[in-house]
Amino acid sequence: MDGAGRCAGAPPSAWRKYRERRSRHSVLDAPIGAEDEGVDVALPAVPAQGGIRLICRPGDSAMPGVAYESGVDLGVFVDGVARTSNWGESILPVTAGDHALGMELNGYVTQHLGPVRTIRFGAANLPIRVAPGQTVTVFYAAPNGPRSPGQFSFSPPPPPAANRYRVAQVVGWWILAGVVLLTFVVIAYLAATKS
């Protein structure tokens, strides 16, 4: 290239002709020179597109103070192919037609000080028909624990029920705190009566 941005050795008229042709075309138009050569450019047919709007609602965490989403990953499948999705809302582009939407949750569990293991739970499947240009909204409600399935629906699900394990933990902690407080009160009372 020379200082003017031309290829070295190219005659100025060729460079001018190239720039004129280039200025008449956008990126999506036919290749430069197609109109000069009488070439008919046919683009491949693109299948009609649609989409699946997936709204994933987490279950109620079994651990007080720990968000459900922090320990559970989504596994979303459209026609058996893994797709990227997050908690909340995700748009999954698909071709128009019939599809099978699948969901699986991956949780991570430790046994005391042992290794971390992955558990799979919350599996759900739903057949969906998407028309050209249509976006189908689907809701997924994750289960509270690994022993119950997840649920797909076309309307917003009700809020998750309180996780019984977490309720038991919170009640247990309050009972333990009450016993410790009562112990201190009894010790203070006995110390005060002896003196």
Rank of each mutant, 00 (worst) to 15 (best):
I119A: 13
A34V: 03
A124G: 11
P149M: 02
R19V: 07
V138K: 03
V170T: 06
S153Y: 03
G9E: 06
D40I: 14
R22A: 08
P12C: 00
P115F: 06
N144A: 11
D60M: 04
D79W: 02
T135N: 12
S195E: 15
Y108H: 15
F154S: 07
A62M: 10
A82D: 12
G38P: 04
G145Q: 00
L126R: 08
V78M: 10
D36Y: 09
V78S: 10
G107S: 06
V138H: 02
P159H: 01
I128G: 02
G88V: 10
G114K: 11
V167R: 12
N125H: 02
I55M: 07
I32S: 00
Y140Q: 05
S85P: 11
N125P: 00
L181T: 08
V179N: 01
F77D: 09
G75M: 01
A123F: 08
E20H: 05
P143R: 02
G3L: 06
S153L: 02
L43D: 13
L101Q: 01
P158L: 13
M1H: 09
Y189F: 14
K194V: 12
A14C: 15
D36Q: 14
P159M: 07
H99F: 02
V170D: 00
P160K: 15
P12L: 08
S26P: 00
I52D: 01
L176A: 15
G38S: 06
P44S: 09
V130H: 03
V94T: 03
P44W: 03
Y68I: 15
T95W: 10
A188K: 07
S90D: 04
G178I: 05
P115C: 07
N163S: 13
N106A: 08
D98M: 11
L101I: 06
A67D: 15
W173M: 09
D73C: 05
A188M: 08
W173G: 12
I32M: 06
A14L: 10
G50N: 10
I32Y: 01
P47F: 03
V179K: 03
T118Q: 13
W15A: 01
N144Y: 09
V180M: 09
R57Y: 04
I175N: 06
F121V: 01
V130Q: 02
G33A: 08
T183Y: 11
F184L: 12
V130N: 00
R83Y: 00
V116F: 13
S23I: 14
G80I: 03
P157D: 04
V171T: 10
A123L: 13
W87R: 05
P157H: 06
F139C: 07
